[in-house]
């Protein structure tokens, strides 16, 4: 088991992103707006990970109704922490 890297909170309108090393890409999304935005959030996460060329990770997104800018910001911070630690 590798370390995990966290950004965000479980407060309303926020999301908690947890990243950890894995053999292949695995994304889990748990969101309070499942019916309305699950597909949209999944696409957003996949796109951001691809931009950052991150593949072999396990990503968990616990979403409390965060808007896109928040999901993106939390992802980027978690990725930054991940890269600083795992690549360095």
């Amino acid at each position: 088991m590798g370390k995990s890297y966290v950004a965000g909170t479980l407060e309303s309108s926020d999301c908690l992103i947890t990243l950890s090393p894995a053999d292949k890409l695995k994304i889990e999304i748990d969101t309070v707006v499942h019916e309305a935005f699950y597909d949209h959030i999944k696409t957003l996460i996949e796109k951001t990970l691809a931009e950052e060329s991150l593949e072999n990770v396990r990503l968990r997104c616990q979403d409390q109704g965060a808007l896109d800018y928040t999901i993106k910001a939390r992802l980027k911070t978690a990725i930054l922490k991940y890269k600083e630690s795992e690549d360095g």
Binding site: Y69, K72, A73, R74, T77, K81
Partner: peptide, 9 residues
Amino acid sequence: DEARELTAQ
């Protein structure tokens, strides 16, 4: 780091 990134986004 979180706050700076969130504010910027």
